[in-house]
Every structure is written in structure tokens, then in C-alpha cells.
Amino acid sequence: MSKDKAINFIAFARCIKIGFIAICAALMAFPFAWMVLSSLKTKAELMSGGWLPSDPQWLNYLEAIRSPLLRNIGNSLAISAASTAYQLVSGAMLAYALAYMSFKGKGLIFALIMGSCMAPSAATYIPSYIILSKMKLLDSYTGLVVSSLVSVFGIFLLRQAFMQVPPSLIEAARLDSASHWRTLWKVVYPVAKPSFAAFVLINAIASYNSYMWPSLVTNSPDLYMVSQGLRHFFIEGGAYGTNWPLVMAGSAIVVLPLLAVFALLQKWFVSGLSGSAGLKG
């Protein structure tokens, strides 16, 4: 009797849990669905409300593709890829040193790196801008990549993952005459792969989404990244003439690469953030 009750209770708790998760998922998915639906409406239809487009306007997508948006996406992808690659290598090397090497001033260096997180990013814009301009890298791809070669969050994430690796593995590699570089990529990297995946995802998304800094240091429309490109749609028709369906179609296209990356990495991503170093894999 009481056993039945217990089972009933567990089933009930399960229903509540699943229901809660379903509601959360729906809340998260709603803006995306709304975006896609709106992108298929006419301007008038969108303003008057209603759920489904009566006559899907696929031409909105064609128009969005014809605009410089694809070029903007290409820019963003290239710059995200380049800066994430640099961040990955520099982050892994720094995290390796912080996790496995002992040297004077290690604590201080770690504190400085972490402390730089505390500075609001707006405070770094002006000095960074001046540095870039002195390097004559304003308004260039190189400038955009150079200004994000290192990711503090990434260093922290990888350091935490590296600390989970049994120290005897590093010592074994050392006794096996492996250089630090080989130890990092042949021994540590395969074990900490989930954290590397989380690293790539988080930094690539941040870089793909970045708006403020790229619009400060670039001027030529050829160099625009996606968020700048999207903004162009807004201002194209003047303050009251924004072509919302077109903005929605553009946004939907812009989101696609991110969804693809996430689908590819999500298995690793979740275990990377939950801190298990994935020693089993």
C-alpha cells in the first residue's frame, strides 16, 4: 500500500519536473518561433498581429541573402574562428602553466588574470582603441582578431579542468621525456576535451555576437560583423520605415551557424560546464 503510494508520488514528481522543463523550453523557443513566423509575413501583416502568415513570403529570405548580410556572416565566422583558435592555444598554454608548473609569482599572476575580469569591459575600450590605433590596426580584420587573442574566462575554465587531471599523468609524461607542448596536446587535451568544447562554444558565440567593440574599431561596411549588418536593416528605412519581416529573416539566417555549432558540440559542452573532466572518455 505505502509502496504504491511512494511509486505514485515519484510518478507525480516526475510529471511536475517534466512539465516545468517543458514550460521552460517553450519559453526559450518562443522568440525563435516568433522570429521565423514573422519573417514570413508581410510588413502590414506583422504589424496587425495574428500568429501564422497567411501567405508565406519566402522572398523576404531571398532579399535578406541578397543584402551584404552573407558577407557580414562570413566576416563574423572568420573572425570568431581566428580569435577562438588563438584564445584556445594561448588559454591552454596559460592554464597548463598555472595548473602544473610551480614558479615564483604564480599566485600573483593568477590573481592578476582573474582580477582583469573585474574591470568592466567599457573601461577597456579607450585604452584598447588607442593601442590598436598606435599599431595601425584600426578598421582591419587583424585589429579585430588581435584585440581578442586571450580569453580570461577561457583560461579559468581550462585551469579548473586541468586541475581535475590526476597529477601522476603529467608526471608520467614527464618521465616519458615528453615536452610540455606534447604533454598538453597528447595527454591533457584528450582528457579535458569537454572543457575545450565548452571553451570553443562560449568564446565563438561571444565573438560572433559582439557588437560594441567591432563597431568602435571598424568603419568600412566591408568589415562589418553580423550584429552591425543586422543593425543596417533597422536604419535602412529610416526611423519609422524599419522593414521588420526583413529584419526577422536576416536574424533567422544569422542564428543558423550558431545553432549548427551548438548541435555539433552540445554533448561535450554540457559535461564541460558541469566540471567532470571526462576521464572516462
Binding site: S168, L169, E171, A172, A173, K186, V187, P190, K280, G281
Partner: peptide, 11 residues
């Protein structure tokens, strides 16, 4: 050296 936890490279 042979370690207590073997320290084999997992990958």
C-alpha cells in the same frame, strides 16, 4: 616509474 593508480594515458 610505476604509479599506484597506473597513470596510463586514458586516450
Amino acid at each position: 616509474m610505476v604509479f599506484q593508480n597506473y597513470a596510463l594515458y586514458p586516450s
